[in-house]
């Protein structure tokens, strides 16, 4: 359970760029005071993930003329989550800021590429930043009375053979699935595509947490 190193036997566990962004994250909210101030000033706020999954993200954005001018964030997450969110915040605000549409199109693979490559098992860590942005933008639309523009998060295929998505897992949870065995009985997830089992298990926990045990201190906005 304790292996952080990649099989390539490189000196550090991640590429140099990841290390740089982990130890000196960009746009990171460093104090509770700053976070409170941003709660008042931000144009949109998004929270995604849950501490039970080991990953949770809060994001504050400022928008001007449909462009993202500022993206601040805080996280309960691993090194990959910290580094990829840091890189993501740079990518969406660089060169005068991306438009909302451009920002939402950034793929986890692009973040990983700019970081010099994340291990495949860590890809989901960068997805959280993307989801938090989506939720912050939705919040912005809500606050500015553009309800028609609100979009739900993109659907992601988890089981690559049977094409089972995260939405399918969420629905199964809402219909009463509590264990991975139940989920597998219902959806056949992971029976052929065994590589998806860890991610499917994590998503199961995530949706159980999301729908059945809301946290007192960290309410969804």
């Amino acid at each position: 359970m304790y292996d952080l190193k990649s099989k390539s036997g490189k000196q550090w566990f991640y590429p140099e760029k990841v290390k740089e962004h982990f130890f000196n994250p960009k746009n990171l909210v460093k104090t509770k005071q700053e976070s409170k101030k941003l709660d008042k000033e931000a144009d949109g706020i998004g929270i995604e993930g849950s501490p039970a999954c080991g990953d949770m993200m809060k994001m504050w954005i400022k928008i001007k003329n449909n462009r993202i001018k500022q993206c601040k964030w805080s996280t309960f997450g691993c090194a990959s989550a910290i580094a990829s969110t840091s890189m993501f915040s740079v990518m969406i605000t660089e060169k005068n800021g991306k438009t909302i549409e451009q920002a939402l199109k950034i793929k986890p693979q692009e973040i990983s590429k700019r970081l010099g490559g994340l291990p495949a098992i860590k890809f989901h860590c960068s997805v959280l930043a993307d989801k938090a942005l989506r939720s912050a933008i939705n919040d912005y639309y809500k606050k500015t009375n553009q309800i028609n523009k609100i979009q739900e998060n993109k659907i992601k295929i988890i089981d690559k053979i049977l094409k089972i998505t995260d939405k399918d897992i969420e629905e199964a949870v809402l219909e009463g699935v509590k264990t991975f065995e139940d989920l597998q009985k219902r959806t056949k997830i992971g029976i052929q595509d065994k590589t998806c089992i860890p991610e499917a298990k994590q998503l199961l926990r995530f949706y159980l947490e999301k729908h059945f045990t809301p946290l007192k201190k960290t309410k969804r906005l």
Binding site: M1, L4, S80, K201
Partner: peptide, 15 residues
């Protein structure tokens, strides 16, 4: 040191 965190395991499951 070492950790029981999911991110340090291959399975993404915590200890």
């Amino acid at each position: 040191a070492s950790s029981g965190s999911a991110c340090t395991s291959k399975s993404l499951n915590p200890s």
